[in-house]
């Protein structure tokens, strides 16, 4: 737990608040506005009574003044339900020489997810965890009770990168356990079997607010190696010996096209897309994300 959340980093995030962009259906009141009117302390507006409305919400003072039945409406402050969906497949184990702190993509994702979980817990939001590879490796229902954060961090800390990727299964599990509108944050490199990840996320976006943290190592973006190397795949058994210089331009073009395609399709599906180069500090990525959320 302590290894994941450095006090200095938490201090940097202390003044920031995470606000959901959309109204999330939740049980707890908090910083996030609920799309439902109901039991709340803040008056929002009046509406003309119509059959079926709660009689107890009739504003009798208004009836005295206007001789009409008005229903008082309130802005409920609800708690947010958020799920951290972490890709723990073997490809996430890659750690390039330029990665911040020499961390693998999985370690980076875990750290970033823990920071976000901590912030949500600070706001008394409910946070859950789904870690997956070709199966769901770890699942923690969304809760806001005390001690839940520690359990979340323990689960994150225990994750090991292995196996292949089956994002559909993980997102299916999220859909099963979330009956309310939730914030789903996916941490993945979208490599190896994640061709239709964006499509699945767009389907999920129908009911939930979806954020994609697309983690890639600097090496995977730039291919900075020199000379002839024998590359071995981390999820598949593919082996390729190649003079890096000869393929670098083509490789960079393909990666750039891939990232542009992901960003475009995510935008079209109203999925918030955040490219994360693991060479940069997680704090910077988190700040950038929170600033963008705050502007919404």
């Amino acid at each position: 737990m302590n290894s994941l959340l450095h006090p200095a980093e938490i201090a940097k995030l202390g003044d920031l608040s995470l606000r959901a962009r959309a109204i999330v259906d939740g049980a707890l009141a908090g910083l996030h506005r609920s799309p439902r009117s109901g039991a709340s302390v803040d008056f929002a507006e009046h509406k003309i009574y119509s059959p079926g409305d709660e009689v107890r919400h009739i504003d009798w003072k208004a009836y005295g003044k206007f001789d009409k039945y008005y229903i008082k409406r309130f802005e409920e402050e609800t708690e947010l339900t958020a799920y951290l969906v972490v890709d723990a497949s073997a490809s996430m184990d890659y750690a390039g020489s330029a990665a911040a702190g020499g961390r693998s993509k999985l370690q980076y994702a875990v750290e970033l997810a823990a920071a976000l979980g901590y912030l949500l817990a600070q706001q008394r939001d409910r946070v859950g965890l789904v870690a997956f590879n070709e199966a769901v490796r770890a699942f923690l229902p969304a809760r806001a009770r005390r001690g839940h954060l520690r359990e979340l961090c323990q689960q994150l800390d225990a994750l090991r990168a292995e196996g292949c990727t089956d994002l559909a299964r993980a997102l299916g599990r999220v859909s099963e356990v979330t009956r309310q509108r939730s914030l789903v944050m996916l941490f993945s490199d979208l490599l190896n079997g994640s061709e239709d990840a964006i499509r699945l996320l767009r389907q999920l976006r129908v009911r939930h607010d979806v954020v994609l943290f697309h983690l890639l190592d600097h090496d995977e973006i730039e291919l900075p190696f020199e000379g002839a190397l024998q590359f071995e795949g981390m999820e598949e058994a593919g082996v390729l010996q190649v003079d890096v210089a000869s393929v670098r331009p083509a490789y960079r073009r393909r990666v750039a096209e891939f990232l542009a395609d992901c960003r475009r399709r995510a935008g079209e599906g109203d999925v918030e897309y955040q490219l994360v180069n693991t060479a940069y500090a997680a704090t910077d990525v988190l700040l950038q994300f929170l600033h963008r959320r705050e502007r919404r």
């Binding site: 996430m92 490599l191 995977e220 190397l229 071995e232």
Partner: peptide, 11 residues
């Protein structure tokens, strides 16, 4: 030299 690599599909 052997180099493990994740983005093999692009390579």
């Amino acid at each position: 030299q052997v180099q493990r690599f994740a983005a093999m599909e692009f390579l």
